Simulated assay, not measured.
Amino acid sequence: MSLLKSLLAATAVAFALPAFAEGITVHDPYARVSTAMSKSGAAFMQIENTGAVDDRLIAASSDIADRVELHTHKADDKGVMQMLHVPEGFVIPAGGNHALQRGGDHVMFLGLRQGLSHGDVVTVTLTFEQAGELVVDIPVDLQRDGAAMGQQMQHMHGAPAGMPPKHMHAPSN
């Protein structure tokens, strides 16, 4: 990887800002793949609900993969961890948040249509029952430690009022 591409990748990851929809804010999104040629990958983020009622993430979509699903990890009756599709989605409690993180709930990309490299950006549309659609540009971060997300969320601040992040946008109709 060239020095310029490395610097651009680091800048994209360092400046990933929150995305906003009615009452919903997405913090610190990032995506990963096992190798550049992987046929599957995943996205992780912190979803905050500042609204007065619970909401639910019910779907995710992206042109990057043949299928995009909401997944979780659960232990079977023998204690073996399995990754499972969660068609009902994830509740985002009113006044609370829900972490999509490694080893837990996440957005799963199945049948990747191209390889993903550190610093690439994946556009994903998240669909919520109440808030509707939220389009998030998610940087690929192959260097992130899985434990770092929770620690970063404890120190994260939102974007200034009236200043929507440049890498997030409302879906076009």
Rank of each mutant, 00 (worst) to 15 (best):
L3Q: 13
K5L: 13
S6Y: 07
A10D: 15
A12F: 13
F15Q: 13
A16F: 04
F20K: 15
A21Y: 02
E22R: 13
G23E: 12
T25Y: 14
T25K: 15
H27S: 08
A31M: 10
R32V: 15
S34P: 00
S34Y: 09
M37K: 12
S38C: 09
S40Y: 11
F44A: 08
L57R: 09
V68F: 04
T72E: 14
T72A: 15
H73R: 15
D77G: 07
K78Y: 11
M81W: 14
Q82V: 07
M83G: 11
G89S: 03
F90T: 04
V91I: 12
P93M: 04
G103A: 06
D105T: 06
M108Y: 11
M108G: 13
G111T: 04
R113A: 05
G115D: 06
S117W: 03
G119E: 11
D120G: 05
V121W: 05
V122A: 03
T123E: 14
V124N: 05
T125A: 10
T127F: 04
F128R: 08
F128D: 07
G132K: 03
P139D: 12
V140W: 06
L142Y: 02
G146N: 14
A147T: 07
Q154F: 02
M156G: 01
M156I: 09
M156Q: 06
P160F: 05
A161K: 01
P164G: 01
A170K: 01
